[in-house]
């Protein structure tokens, strides 16, 4: 069976994430929130703006910090999801290859409200090209800020790199423990995957495109 994205989206959406009587949402072994995209965007782009105002060359530092947050997100969130009971029940029965781990996780992402992730090409163990329609980062940026010269989807870029690292640099199929040591092992390796956003709604493109490759960028 190949990855049936719609079935995964409907199954994950059907879990009906909502706060329990403590006002918390335990799911995938994590605590979820249904958070406000504007909040993430305001605090992230405020950090970017603050760094640029201090010195224009600090833009790269701000970008690196925000992408790192995306990598940490993917390590724990994607990692937690791909080793969860929910994954075993819904996605794992469809998996036939290591590449299906990537496609399955992208399908789950498409139930998280982040916008539509679509795999354009996946070269096993080497390269992933993915587009994002309605990226919450870029749409928020377009609404509130002038056109950007650089891409603005930091969470997505970090997330895509992290996904490739979990599947190919590490071995998510072996159910690793998501420790600090494991993070360093797969994200600080010379062969780690890095991602760059090659197109972005915030720069006037029709959608966002992210490329993850082994070569550090």
């Amino acid at each position: 069976m190949a990855i049936h994205e719609r079935a995964i989206i409907e199954a994950v959406s059907g879990l009906g994430f909502a706060g329990n009587e403590e006002g918390l949402i335990p799911a995938f072994g994590l605590y979820l929130t249904k958070h406000f995209a504007d909040y993430y965007n305001r605090i992230s782009y405020a950090l970017l703006g603050d760094f640029i105002r201090r010195a224009p060359e600090l833009e790269e530092d701000a970008r690196a910090l925000l992408i790192e947050a995306g990598r940490v997100c993917s390590f724990h969130t994607f990692g937690g999801i791909m080793t969860s009971v929910e994954w075993d029940a819904v996605v794992r029965p469809m998996i036939e290859s290591r590449e299906d781990w990537v496609l399955g996780m992208v399908a789950v992402v498409n139930a998280l409200g982040w916008g539509r992730w679509e795999v354009k090409s996946l070269e096993a163990n080497e390269r992933l090209v993915l587009t994002v329609h309605d990226s919450y980062e870029a749409t928020g940026y377009v609404r509130d800020y002038p056109r950007a010269k650089e891409p603005r989807c930091y969470l997505a870029a970090g997330g895509v790199a992290g996904l490739m690292n979990l599947v190919y640099q590490g071995d998510i199929t072996a159910r690793p423990t998501f420790s600090e040591a494991y993070y360093l092992e797969i994200f600080r390796s010379p062969r780690t995957f890095a991602a760059r956003e090659t197109r972005c709604l915030a720069m006037g493109d029709s959608c966002c495109e992210i490329v993850a490759e082994r070569d550090p960028i």
Binding site: A11, L15, N20, E21, P26, A27, S84, V85, E86, D88, A89, V90, R92, P93
Partner: peptide, 20 residues
Amino acid sequence: PDLYVIDEPGAFQLTVAPKS
């Protein structure tokens, strides 16, 4: 039937993948 959640307020949430 493939994935269900049992919830007891004030006690626990149990997520079950019976086939797995």
